[in-house]
Write a protein that binds this DNA or RNA. Sequence first.
RNA 1: GGUCCCAUCGUCUAGUGGUUAGGACGCCGGCCUCUCACGCCGGUAACUCGGGUUCGAAUCCCGGUGGGAUCACCA
Length: 469
Amino acid sequence: METIVTRFPPSPTGYLHVGGARTALFNWLYARQNNGKFVLRIEDTDTVRSTQASVDAIFEAMRWLELDWDEGPYFQTQRFDLYREYLQKLLDSGDAYYCICTQQEVEAMRQKAMAQGGKPKYDGRCRERGLPRSDNAVIRFKSPLAGTTVVEDVIKGNIVFQNTEQDDFVVSRSDGTPTYNFVVVVDDISMGINTVIRGDDHVMNTPKQILLYRALQSPLPVFGHVPMVLGKDKARLSKRHGAMSVTAYRDMGYLPDAFINYLARLGWSHGDQEFFTRQELVEKFSLKNIGKSAGVFDTDKLTALNADHIRATSVRQLAPRALPFFRDKGYDAADDDYLAGVIGTLHTRSKTLVEMADGAHFYYREDVRPYDDKAAKKFLKPETARVLALLAEQLGELDNLAEKTQEVAFKRVMDETGLGFGKIAQPVRVALTGTTVSPGIFELIEVLGKARVLARLRAAAEFIESTGK
RNA sequence: GGUCCCAUCGUCUAGUGGUUAGGACGCCGGCCUCUCACGCCGGUAACUCGGGUUCGAAUCCCGGUGGGAUCACCA
């Protein structure tokens, strides 16, 4: 069986966006699943808009998503000799010709055609003139004047184009640089790409490219055009929909596996399954289960999936990923046992790593004061000072504050005060965290450790005394 | 406007002639409970319209409508 070779060819004119990431993912998955090759090619022929910063941003995003490539990155700007070679082949075989019409003349042809109700096309006036090479001449491809070109799309089915719709498009500009449709074909042929999975917006290019493959006497790759990703308003995803850059999602605390899971499920399905590990995706992905209609990017669903992935990831693996977010909050955190304990209590409570870091505030603050105003008013009342002091005293007598051992201390406090656990939990929580929302009291005490717990309980008791009454 | 594509709950989707049209997110209840989550239980909500074909259409065909893509010496 032929080795599957796929590719991802971004143009470095900006960051890697969500739509691009999805086509990269599909190509990667397909290659991995078939033990094939995944090629990265940078389409930087638009030298005006291409930047090194964009190239770097794309690499960074690919690395974050863990979409590793087997070949490349190739840069089109370094392949001009090859394009020239193929251009000559086209000229030699009579499939292309020089055209000396100026852009203004061509524009005039279009206007005229439109005025007559036709489609705007180049009229082919240089087609049979046998013009020689000259300074400002472009090279045009000689499109067939009749017949049809059919794109056998693995996800959309057969798409038929009348060749009369096609005009003789430019393959080489007057400055000698080759155009997009031409270089793509040359690259795909020379790189041995046999599976082209790309965005929907390329379908109209495909018949042109097929014509080029034929003229170059090369076998066609398998084509698959995946539907677009839309924004909430059902319009094509763009800056006004907020985060478009893939790395922005990294910064918002999403896990790469959650992100690719979401991206894969947007437009592709495997029965009712929603949660996929990277490995499952590689195993179960299939071109034929890609849907035909465009999908709306839904951050809520991505977030829910992210929560699932966080929960499915072990604390040990989560720690290094969460650490940068903790540091961002200014916490003096390290990848140690304490962090593991902290994450352990926040594991099921965090939808994103940012949320996790937010929820960890009290673990990394020496003093939780000032207390949240409402929390203090409601739970740190005069009568609770005694409870907190008592608890500090009881806990102080214990060797360690493991969840099990704590029971004794709480039991004594409850016995002595006659209060139920429900009555003392919130005051304790406020004393230890400064707020009314946190992980469970017992687990939190264990993680915090004796020193912090005693200090905070006493501080709260003092706080109550000092506020008087 | 030409060409091409698409059409199931608000969103992502399952469905391939016979289903009470299923799942997930969201939303709304409830249970659990030391708060918040998690978990569990329940609810809300869809086949774009009109014609066919058929004993029977979400499923097949035609048309309408709606949405999208694309019409460069940009990629």
